[in-house]
């Protein structure tokens, strides 16, 4: 069965725009099978989210010498909005011979949303993970090419001022199962040198635990 051939049984019941629907049923640049791509051909790989939060995205990038994205492949665990957003993102960064990574890093969820002709307001948050995964993949490219100074940890706030540990690091640690301050410290080394941050770290752990594990 080719799911992409499905025609709506009536034309009134769809919740999303035609563009969202199109990208949901016919996603572009999707990695369909495990053996479909050779990981070694890709020089920027990023993954964000987790199935526990309802969304997880993986992005594989092929970036050439001119720092242009030649290929953007992906996979996504998520709702229709998340799948369509990631598909559209992969189109945006590869169309017209590819986008410079400088420009790709500036893509905002709003840009994807616009190209999808709009997601319903309460689904907008579902489009946020795609560009995060893209940036994670670009950061991975910087890491591989020894340009660590160009890595952008965006949106992250430094909590431990000595070891430069961010709230995102703490979020990741909690998602990995560290549910006490001691366990988070084991994983991240947070608060070992900068003791002043400990109360804030404890607060963040409570926040993320509540957020992800109720």
């Amino acid at each position: 069965m080719n799911v992409g051939d499905v025609k709506s049984y009536d034309n009134t019941s769809w919740f999303y725009t035609d563009t969202v629907k199109d990208h949901f049923f016919n996603p572009r640049n999707l990695v369909k099978k495990d053996n479909e791509i050779e990981v070694k051909d890709f020089n920027g790989i990023g993954s964000v989210g987790s199935p526990a939060c309802g969304d997880q995205m993986s992005v594989w990038l092929k970036i050439d010498k001119n720092e242009t994205i030649k290929e953007c492949r992906w996979r996504c665990f998520g709702c229709a909005s998340a799948i369509a957003s990631t598909s559209m993102l992969s189109v945006i960064v590869t169309e017209n011979d590819g986008m410079k990574i400088e420009d790709a890093m500036k893509i905002k969820p709003q840009d994807i949303n616009k190209r999808l002709d709009g997601l319903p307001t309460r689904k907008f948050h579902c489009s946020v993970l795609g560009d995060k995964a893209l940036r994670a993949a670009i950061n991975d490219y910087f890491r591989r090419t020894g340009q660590n100074d160009r890595m952008v940890i965006e949106g992250a706030k430094i909590i431990d001022k000595i070891l430069k540990i961010t709230d995102k690091d703490i979020e990741e640690a909690v998602l990995d199962g560290a549910d006490t301050f001691e366990k988070v410290q084991q994983k991240t080394k947070v608060g070992i040198k900068d003791k002043t941050c400990i109360p804030e770290v404890e607060q963040l752990i409570r926040f993320y635990k509540e957020k992800y594990f109720g």
């Binding site: 799911v3 499905v6 025609k7 709506s8 049984y9 009536d10 019941s13 769809w14 919740f15 999303y16 949901f24 049923f25 199935p51 309802g54 969304d55 665990f77 998520g78 709702c79 229709a80 998340a82 799948i83």
Partner: peptide, 16 residues
């Protein structure tokens, strides 16, 4: 497992 419910629902919805 491995799939998200809303996506399943919308696919099923396409088949009525």
């Amino acid at each position: 497992l491995d799939v998200e419910g809303e996506a399943i629902m919308l696919m099923m919805n396409e088949y009525g």
